[in-house]
Amino acid sequence: MNCWKTFNIGKDFGTIRLNVLSLMGMIIFFIVYYLLFIDLTHVERLSSFNPIIFLITIIFILPVHKLIHCLSARVVGKKATLSFGWFNYEIIPSIHCNIPGTLSKRRSLLVIASPAVVITLGMVILTIVYPQHLHYFSLISAINFGISISDFVYLNNLIKAPANAFIEDGPDGCRILVKQS
């Protein structure tokens, strides 16, 4: 007899809606970040645009985001591994952070929120130190924010979960496990 009640939170949002929300969030975040820091740093001249740096940034932001998920899981005491595969009929490569077993609600909140916090905080510090590269740092932050939208959907559902819940990572999203009385 199964004594756990499972809530699957991986399929709550439609893929198209999530992608549109991510794109809109990315654009709004870029505008706000750029305008805020262009005003705060009083930079007179931005460095010239380098498309190679821009492409490298776009290629590596998702693996770095997933790597931070795995590293934060290891920090809270869980073994985590990165796996690479193919998505969408073997056209688009995908990366997934695998965390075997369950995590407590607090640890799950930390693991899920860590890439958004770490990368954004890092870009804010770099923007303050090197304001002439503001356009690069605002792009990196905006792309990471767009990637983090799905994490924010998970966080929203986890916050509503009971305090004694455990979270299990699965191929179709994470599941909230609540012990039935």
Results as ranks from 00 to 15, higher is better:
1 M>V: 15
3 C>M: 13
5 K>L: 13
7 F>L: 04
7 F>M: 01
7 F>T: 10
10 G>L: 02
15 T>R: 01
16 I>P: 05
16 I>A: 09
17 R>S: 15
19 N>S: 12
19 N>E: 10
21 L>F: 01
24 M>P: 00
26 M>I: 06
27 I>G: 05
28 I>S: 01
28 I>Y: 00
30 F>K: 04
31 I>C: 04
32 V>T: 04
32 V>K: 00
35 L>P: 10
36 L>V: 14
37 F>G: 07
41 T>I: 08
44 E>F: 05
48 S>G: 08
49 F>R: 09
50 N>R: 13
53 I>T: 10
53 I>L: 12
54 F>P: 14
56 I>H: 03
57 T>R: 02
64 V>C: 14
67 L>E: 05
70 C>P: 06
73 A>V: 09
80 A>E: 09
81 T>L: 14
82 L>V: 14
86 W>G: 01
89 Y>E: 02
90 E>C: 06
99 I>R: 00
99 I>N: 01
100 P>A: 01
101 G>S: 04
104 S>N: 07
105 K>D: 02
106 R>T: 13
109 L>I: 12
109 L>T: 05
112 I>V: 15
115 P>S: 01
116 A>L: 13
117 V>T: 06
117 V>E: 00
119 I>G: 11
121 L>C: 14
121 L>Q: 07
122 G>W: 07
126 L>T: 11
128 I>Y: 11
129 V>A: 07
129 V>T: 10
131 P>I: 13
131 P>K: 08
133 H>W: 12
139 L>V: 15
139 L>G: 05
141 S>P: 10
142 A>E: 03
142 A>T: 06
143 I>K: 02
144 N>P: 06
145 F>E: 05
145 F>P: 11
145 F>N: 05
146 G>T: 00
148 S>A: 14
154 Y>N: 12
156 N>H: 11
156 N>S: 13
157 N>H: 15
159 I>T: 13
160 K>V: 10
163 A>P: 11
165 A>E: 05
166 F>A: 11
170 G>P: 08
172 D>E: 14
172 D>P: 07
173 G>H: 10
175 R>N: 12
177 L>F: 14
179 K>L: 15
180 Q>I: 12
